[in-house]
Amino acid sequence: MAETDAQGQSYEAQHVHSVYEEIASHFSSTRYKPWPIVERFLEERPDGAIGADVGCGNGKYLSINDKVFIVGSDRSTNLVSIAKQHHQHLNTSSLVVADNLSLPHPLHAFDFAISIAVIHHLSTPARRVEAVAAVLELLKGAGGRALIYVWALEQKDSRRGWDEGHEQDVMVPWVMKGKKEKKTGSAKKGRRKGDGEEGYGEAAKEEEQAVAAVQDKTFLRYYHLYRKGELEHDVEEAGGVVVESGYEKDNWWAIARLKDGDGR
């Protein structure tokens, strides 16, 4: 964890940005299932709404609702390339490479914004609040809504086993499997299992065990694990109002609007 803004920036460059560039392809192959809260939020947007997906990764949320237009952005050029390959012929989205603290969008021009599993990668409290503010300031005052989703500290039943009272700033390994050789026999072909943190990467575990992996490579990514109430606090610090919030599968989420926006 960094202390100053400048340290935070270079820390994240090393422990977040460069890691995602390297693991982009493998990471993407494990990110195909949308989270129910995010899916619900997108499906509830009015027809023709304009949205921003800040930190869109491989773009898995760009095609949930084909009645809205979404501009997706990500810091990782490689992830954006993958997202583009998947969405080349989709009418209702577009992609750019951008940093979430320097977004290339006009202020208050969007009906909605989402930032899913992004803000927990910022390494100082001030930078996290700034990242929330950067999402909120995209919103129109009238009816604008943002959904923010971060990894929770309280996840004692997860594989990681973190819980209340544990260290919140952690380095999380991503194991990229090396060259694979199938064992003799009837190993089923399955999706590769990423060392996925959010709980939806487990499906292919059995298939994985039928495959002998050599030359595994481990990458460490920085995360700030949010404790209960912390996301709501950050939203308020950033000038927002929490409309709804909750916990879903090892993550905290909040739907927010601007303080001076209306309550619609």
């Binding site: 920036q9 952005s73 810091r75 050029t77 954006v80 390339s81 583009k84 992609l95 750019v96 490479v97 951008a98 940093d99 603290l101 320097s102 977004l103 290339p104």
Partner: peptide, 13 residues
């Protein structure tokens, strides 16, 4: 290749 890049050089951040 159809993607605009908005990453800024360090001195402009």
């Amino acid at each position: 290749e159809g993607v605009a890049n908005f990453l800024l050089p360090g001195h402009l951040v």
